[in-house]
């Protein structure tokens, strides 16, 4: 599933990041890489989300959220 399909309040593990090269790099610099756990905090109907990764919150638009593939952690 993609991050934009997630449910707020859930912790997800990032499986893959499929973005335009420049965005992928910026996300990687923030520590959002395969294997990282992220918490989905908020979501808008259109798919923009707020999540936290490594102790910091970020807001991203739908296009970026669609490119982050995640699975629910146990």
């Amino acid at each position: 599933m993609t991050l934009s399909e997630g449910v707020p309040g859930t912790v997800y593990k990032v499986l893959d990041v499929q973005e335009e090269a420049s965005i992928e790099r910026r996300l990687a610099a923030l520590g959002l890489i395969s294997g990282t756990n992220i918490t989905l905090l908020n979501k808008k109907k259109k798919g923009a989300v707020i999540f936290s990764v490594r102790g910091t919150r970020f807001a991203i638009g739908k296009v970026i959220a669609d490119g982050i593939l995640v699975e629910v952690t146990n």
């Binding site: 335009e20 910026r26 919150r57 807001a59 991203i60 638009g61 296009v63 970026i64």
Partner: peptide, 10 residues
């Protein structure tokens, strides 16, 4: 529009 919002929320 790639509409790529990416911003830290302090």
């Amino acid at each position: 529009s790639e509409n790529s919002l990416l911003i830290e929320l302090p």
